[in-house]
């Protein structure tokens, strides 16, 4: 693996220059928030920020996505083509390691042996992930180390950048990452840089104060589907769904149709297990009739079912749901409480 040192003050300019050659999405200030957006040619991205308000899953699994088109004929609406897939390469710059890990978790679902999801896979193939390691974990709500990640994790990353103080250590991890070698330039990194990164990694992991028994609750969830615990957990939940919309690993979606005149499209939109209509059947029957069952589903899906199906917890510890919940429902506390059952 190629490792280089890149001067700190040059990084934003390198990315800005790349934005003239390909689609580059990077963290930018938007009023008082930091959000990913497409850069104009030469535009410099933020390199010092905590994390983006939204998870970058939107670039692989957009909140609204056209699946296919159709058109009216005398005999009914007929298929008129797929989503346009050829849109060139995308560079996703400034992804935090927790969010990059979420891509590997989404891969497990969308890129299974049987039933591969072409929309996700096509975007994933065309996307290069450049991550910025968390030299100092940005929030007190960060808990990546409890769910299998760490502040310098390279899972799902093509090019990992770690701030060593005066320069970034750039690790070109995959062929997609290596394709950026000439653009990023820099000088070969020696043993000293590697050692420094290891020290930073150890210190950063130690700085993560939130520890939750995420793995430990799996056997408890296996035997506590029915438990009084679930009866009160959800009571203050407003069913707004923010937790699932901001979550980097939530993948549920709805499929719907939109018609204008003689043409229409079939689209998919993010959906949420927090919503009553999510499971409501035409007959009126709803297997998850109240917020109690929906909260249980959210917790079970992330910490039990995903482990059963894919051997991984479907949570990367980014803490977005903790920060955004309007009634302060904290998944860390929920997990800790389950551990006591």
């Amino acid at each position: 693996m190629e490792k280089r040192l890149i001067k700190k003050e040059t990084l934003a300019g390198i990315v800005g220059e790349l934005a003239g050659k390909m689609r580059v999405c990077a963290p930018m200030k938007a009023e008082d928030q930091v959000l990913f957006r497409v850069l104009e040619a030469g535009e410099k991205p933020l390199v010092d920020f905590a994390n983006t308000k939204n998870a970058p899953k939107n670039f692989l699994f957009p909140r609204t996505e056209m699946m296919m088109k159709y058109t009216r004929t005398g005999k009914g609406m007929v298929f008129a083509g797929e989503e346009e897939t050829d849109r060139g390469q995308t560079l996703l710059f400034g992804v935090r390691p927790c969010d990059a890990r979420s891509f590997t978790l989404l891969d497990m679902l969308f890129d299974q042996e049987k039933y591969r999801d072409p929309y996700y896979i096509n975007k994933r193939k065309r996307t290069t992930v450049v991550a910025l390691a968390c030299v100092h974990p940005p929030y007190t709500t960060c808990f990546c180390t409890s769910v299998g990640g760490n502040p310098v994790s390279s899972e799902g990353v093509d090019l990992l950048l770690t701030d060593l103080g005066e320069a970034y250590l750039a690790e070109f991890l995959t062929p997609k990452g290596e394709a950026l070698l000439s653009a990023f330039g820099g000088t070969p990194a020696g043993k000293g840089a590697e050692k420094k990164k290891e020290e930073i990694a150890a210190r950063a992991a130690g700085e993560i104060a939130s520890r939750i028994p995420a793995r430990e609750i799996k056997p408890i969830l296996d035997t506590h589907f029915e438990d009084p615990f679930w009866d009160t957990l959800h009571l203050k939940c407003l069913a707004c769904g923010t937790c699932t919309y901001l979550c980097p690993t939530c993948h549920c979606f709805d499929i719907s149709d939109e018609v204008k005149g003689n043409d229409g499209i079939r689209i998919r939109n993010w959906d949420s297990c927090m919503f009553p209509m999510f499971t409501k059947e035409t007959s009126g029957h709803n297997p998850r009739p109240s917020q109690k069952e929906r909260w249980r589903q959210r917790i079970m899906h992330k910490f039990r079912y995903y482990v059963d199906n894919f051997g991984a917890i479907s949570c990367v510890g980014c803490g977005r749901c903790v920060m955004a919940c309007p009634v302060n429902l904290d998944i860390r506390k929920v997990v800790a409480d389950i551990a006591k059952l």
Binding site: Y115, H251, F253, D254, D271, C273, M300, H301
Partner: peptide, 22 residues
């Protein structure tokens, strides 16, 4: 169960870890 994708992706028809659709 209520279904959309029918191929175990859209996330609504699970009973425990099993998807009714797949």
């Amino acid at each position: 169960m209520r279904m959309k994708c029918g191929i175990g992706k859209c996330g609504r028809c699970n009973v425990g870890e099993k998807y009714v659709c797949k």
